[in-house]
C-alpha cells in the first residue's frame, strides 16, 4: 500500500513540475478569434452595434462584452455565421440596434449641398470626396451605406438610395422545388 502511495506521489511530483514548466515555455500569444469574427462582419463601419466600427465590435464579441445580434447590416445570415463560429445559439437581431434594410448608398443632392465637409469627416471609409465650400460627391462604389453621413448634414441633402439590380448584379434564383405542387 505504501509503495503505491510513494510511486504515485513521485510520479505526480515529476509530472506536476513538467506541466508547470511547459505552461510557461509554450505560452501562445495573440487572438485569432477577433480576425475570424471581423471577417464575418459586413464592414459597413456604421456603428449601429454601439461600437466605433466593425473591428471594435469584433473585439467586443470575442471578449464577451457584446452579443452577436447587434449588427443590422449583417442581418440574420451574419448572426447565424457568428453563432456557428462561436458555438452559440442563434438569436434574432436586437431591435435596439436597428433593423435589416436593403443595401443602399448615400446620394448627395447637389443642388442643396453647401460644401461644409461635415459628411466627409463622418464617413468612416472616406467614400465622400470634396473640399470646403465645394460640392461633395459620394463615390458609390466605396459607400458602405452606413448612413453616418446623413445626420451631420446641416442642410439634409444626403439621402439613402437602395441599390438596384443591374445585369452585373442580377442573380439567378434558387430553382423552385416542384415536388410539393405536383401532389
Amino acid at each position: 500500500m505504501l509503495t503505491a502511495l510513494l510511486v504515485m506521489t513521485a510520479v505526480a511530483l515529476v509530472l506536476g513540475a513538467l506541466l508547470g514548466y511547459a505552461s510557461l515555455k509554450f505560452k501562445v500569444e495573440g487572438d485569432p478569434l477577433v480576425e475570424k469574427i471581423d471577417a464575418i462582419l459586413p464592414q459597413t463601419q456604421c456603428g449601429q452595434c454601439g461600437f466605433p466600427g466593425c473591428r471594435p465590435y469584433a473585439t467586443a464579441i470575442a471578449s464577451g462584452e457584446a452579443d452577436i445580434n447587434q449588427c443590422p447590416p449583417g442581418g440574420e445570415e451574419g448572426i447565424r455565421k457568428l453563432a456557428d463560429l462561436l458555438g452559440r445559439e442563434f438569436k434574432s437581431l436586437s431591435e435596439e440596434h436597428g433593423v435589416e434594410k436593403p443595401k443602399s448608398v448615400a446620394v448627395i443632392d447637389e443642388n442643396t449641398c453647401i460644401g461644409c465637409t461635415l459628411c466627409i469627416q463622418a464617413c468612416p471609409v472616406d467614400a465622400i470626396v470634396g473640399a470646403a465650400k465645394q460640392l461633395h460627391t459620394v463615390v458609390a462604389g466605396e459607400c458602405t451605406g452606413c448612413e453616418l453621413c446623413v445626420a451631420p448634414c446641416p442642410v439634409d441633402c444626403i439621402a439613402m438610395e437602395p441599390i438596384v439590380d443591374t445585369l452585373d448584379t442580377w442573380k439567378w434564383r434558387y430553382p423552385v422545388i416542384q415536388i410539393k405542387q405536383a401532389a
Binding site: 505526480a12 509530472l15 506536476g16 506541466l19 508547470g20 511547459a22 505552461s23
Partner: peptide
C-alpha cells in the same frame, strides 16, 4: 488547484 495542472488533478 493551480491552473496549469488542473486537468491531471481533475482526472485524479
Amino acid at each position: 488547484i493551480p491552473y496549469e495542472i488542473r486537468i491531471p488533478v481533475f482526472i485524479l
